[in-house]
């Protein structure tokens, strides 16, 4: 079962139940959005800027002949949006002037999650099935899902964690990176990394924070041995409190950090491990 219309107030939930939609393949999913739009004439179609949303929405937009707006961080009006460009070094206010639907992917860290209470249950939205009899299946067999490989982890999800502990190239090895993981464990935090740490094989790439990785905005972001390249800053500059630990006092990371410690992280992390309170 996949929910495709999931609005804030749950006015209606549509269910499209088909084997063709069993995997997150762009071809049938974009076709489904196209089909639902033709029947429902929505003014807006929105997904999150996840790898799923970014894969599907532009394809659906092309089928509907409209320009989508990627990675919206603020909705200023029904057709007026703010989005970061140049790795977050500029903010662009853009107006959609085309025909319906106006299509957006939104940066989820920029919008608060509405609280779900048990009291709201009686107002649960009606659920209806999408009529798939006109679902065009001409081109859908051209792609096949093979497999998904993921890193098993018990730590909180990087995208939604309250605290993120990140390490860079200065950790020097996958073995040393375990120090970061230990600290994260102590604080109940998610682990992040720079591209340099990923490319060096210290951690898998789904931990990468930055323009080309995950965008995070936790309450506390701690950067260890991270110089602070603009591509990395693009992924974490909206964090509430940023702590940087680096032995180079001139590292650009200190320009965005609220608290900085200059020193050897191999001495400072064990000390932090000892002195930081346990949080689970």
């Amino acid at each position: 079962m996949y929910f495709i219309s999931y609005l804030l107030f749950h006015l209606q939930v549509l269910v499209a139940d088909s084997d063709k939609l069993a995997h997150p393949l762009a071809e049938p999913w974009a076709e489904l959005v196209h089909l639902v739009q033709q029947k429902g004439s929505y003014s807006h179609i929105i997904t999150s800027s996840s790898s799923f949303g970014k894969n599907i929405l532009p394809r659906a937009a092309a089928l509907l002949n409209v320009s989508p707006v990627t990675d919206v961080v603020e909705i200023s009006g029904p057709r007026l949006f703010i989005r970061p460009i140049y790795a977050g070094n500029a903010l662009c206010t853009v107006r959609y002037t085309g025909l319906d639907p106006c299509m957006l992917t939104i940066r989820s860290t920029s919008f608060p999650v509405p609280p779900v209470s048990s009291e709201s249950r009686p107002n649960a939205a009606p659920i209806s099935q999408v009529d798939l009899s006109t679902f065009s299946e001409d081109n859908l067999s051209k792609s096949r899902y093979v497999k998904h490989t993921s890193q098993e982890t018990e730590r909180p999800d990087l995208g939604s964690a309250r605290v993120v502990i990140s390490g860079g190239r200065a950790l020097k090895s996958a073995e040393n990176f375990k120090l970061i993981e230990k600290l994260a464990e102590k604080l109940g935090a998610a682990v992040g990394a720079t591209r340099a740490a990923v490319d060096a094989g210290f951690v898998p790439n789904e931990l990468q924070v930055g323009q080309t990785g995950k965008i995070v905005a936790p309450e506390l972001y701690m950067a260890f041995g991270i110089s602070g390249a603009i591509q990395h800053l693009a992924g974490m500059r909206d964090s509430k409190v940023i702590v940087a630990v680096n032995k180079d006092a001139d590292a650009p990371i200190f320009q965005v950090a609220d608290y900085g410690l200059v020193g050897d992280l191999f001495e400072l992390i064990p000390e932090l491990l000892e002195k930081l309170p346990e949080q689970k």
Binding site: L25, S50, Y145, H148, P204
Partner: peptide, 12 residues
């Protein structure tokens, strides 16, 4: 490269 890992597809 997808959120949470790698996905393998076969495309004609």
């Amino acid at each position: 490269e997808v959120d949470g890992g790698l996905e393998t597809l076969c495309l004609d």
